[in-house]
Design a protein around this nucleic acid. Structure first.
Lengths: 203, 203, 203, 203
DNA sequence: TATGAATGAGCCTTCATTCAT
DNA sequence: GATGAATGAAGGCTCATTCAT
């Protein structure tokens, strides 16, 4: 996917250090993007909820777009690290897969932030250059973990689909849980993870 | 979901007759929404590509929002009819499920319009009242077909998941294909439909 | 006043014959202008309440402005005739004055139309040329009657003010009654007319 | 009048502090409303004459309507204060009445602003809620002064009419002077005030 | 005469961004 | 770093008027 992009990534500034002020702005922005969407969230909304004035935002980010990009890039990095952590020291590909599914579900449904939502829902609001930069981050780490686990399962002959296709079907199915899943007595996040894992593996 | 909505649907005008002019505007709008998203599409964009002036749009639709609503409602109705057609005369629940999966994939990937994309991607741009009206349309027909097929499979003991969960996982997985699936020699739409169907059924 | 206007009246078409259709449109327009004001009344409002479509209005009047002008000019003419009728055969200037005051009050407060309101309230919405034409109509007949009565009173030494000033004070006082006077047991229109007349004459 | 209004005043923001920028905008707006009327004055007109761009207006006022409301409310307050000042320390009700008449005429005909014109002429352009708020301001102070003076005259038996009616007739007569009175050698504002006062009192 | 789609200028308002203080 | 007034380009929508049918 990213290989077919003709867009240069060089013009996108790398993720600099995140000061506490920046972090607060990002947290607010992510919540707001989740509530109303990027386009309908104004820079004033973000400033107001952060407790500063709109002009001050631009001392921290040079544009609204950069806020979105930073949020997505950070989330991507964080999820990459979570993925690495989830599979580190786990040899069994089935266990790896189960861990990754649970990790992705946790990212989506965690209560203290909506960064993973934004990563899916606001993709189209990201400029092509920024999108390419985020994709590059994602493919480097997060997706590598997934493909390793899936290919491990395939090698053992227990994956129902081709690993590439399985990955895409899984991604869609998991991302969509944000619209319907609510933890309750009957179904917990780990329970859902097990169920999804079982679906994609031969029983 | 729709049951917990406090929003009244009564204020939303029912879908009136679609004149040729309206149909042309809708087709253009759907393409544009797909290309750039609802928010970034201006009424002037729509008018220009339709070949009329922006003021003329408002003879046919009383607001930009109504264009979105009409497009979504029409697509929902059309998909409901396609779903009914797909299962009519088919008794075997597995065959029904296969037909519905293929039908949904066809809706998403048809070349002459992007209405199904819009139905998924622009959901958040729809006012609560309009959203409730569309949901009502969808639950009445389209989702009923799906649940009948899935429950049929479950009754025969060959569905891997609870029907409700299966439906949601399937919906996410299928909708997401819009971002990665491109028909080529190796994988056709019916081939993908078979593969997805097989994933969710015990082999 | 009209003498100092440099505006030519020639460009304003004289009042042609008023067909029944025109009359109905005018009646509706006057009511609407009274309810919402000229600017806030749309040509579609007028058409709708008349029971025709907006395009059809322009077969009867060549512009919205012409509707206003026609309504004002007709009202002016009608009030001129009422004034002539009120003083015809009356010799005593005090009786004339009383009759004119009552006539003006009746015009303002009649129940079957709001033409006199419009004449006062929408003056500023009238183009200078049309305004000059209406003024000319008014000065020719209506105001002549008033001045004759007031000068008659002055000649008898019973008018408190200079006739020109008295006329202006009276006009303002009477026009303003539209905002506060409501007929009830205590105060009728003839009663008010008597009271006003008494105010401006030495007792 | 205001008692029969069902409109709540609570939703109307109280008059905040008037910054110099706001004051300049208001002065310009009032002049423009006087020249062309509220409806025909565009926010671009106001901005241009103020020397700013149209977008900047909305830093100071949240809508065009709020500009009108603020102008009217300020004028109402100012006239209330003028009225209090005019009668303070004056015991004789005739002198009070004379002072109030002159004060009202001065407000209407002052050369440095047309606020009092706007107060009368653009009443109908004011939203019902804002109108109720202005009425409340007016009845609290301005009208109280008038009624006190008129009732004082009535108690002495020298007022020709019932005080309520006298007030309304006076208001109409004085407001209308804006259309015809021009100070010249023959008639000055104080001269006119005397004349009007004499009209309403028994000689 | 009536219709109603189309016109196109114009309106109020929003909003990301800049910059002097 | 923070402020908040100012910018100026759009944006959605309105509306008097025209005209082919």
């Amino acid at each position: 996917m990213s290989k077919t992009q003709a867009v240069s990534v060089d013009s996108v500034a790398p993720l600099g250090p995140i000061s506490p002020a920046k972090a607060r702005i990002l947290a607010v922005a992510v919540d707001l993007f989740h509530e109303k969407g990027y386009e309908r969230t104004t820079v004033r909304d973000i400033a107001e909820r952060t407790g500063i004035l709109s002009g001050s935002l631009f001392h921290h980010f040079k544009s609204k777009q950069e806020i979105l990009y930073t949020a997505m890039a950070m989330t991507t990095q964080a999820m990459g690290q979570s993925a690495e952590a989830a599979v580190t020291g786990v040899d069994d590909p089935v266990a790896q897969l189960k861990a990754l599914i649970l990790m992705e579900l946790n990212s989506i449904h965690r209560e203290d932030g909506h960064a993973a939502y934004v990563l899916v829902d606001e993709w189209r609001s990201l400029d092509p250059e920024h999108a390419a930069a985020v994709l590059k981050l994602r493919d480097g780490s997060y997706e590598r973990c997934w493909m390793a686990a899936l290919e491990g399962c395939a090698d053992k002959g227990i994956l129902k689909n081709n690993p590439r296709i399985a990955r895409q079907l899984l991604r869609g199915a998991l991302a969509w849980t944000r619209t319907w899943f609510r933890a309750d007595g009957a179904l917990t996040l780990p329970g859902l993870a097990d169920e999804v894992c079982g679906t994609f593996l031969k029983s």
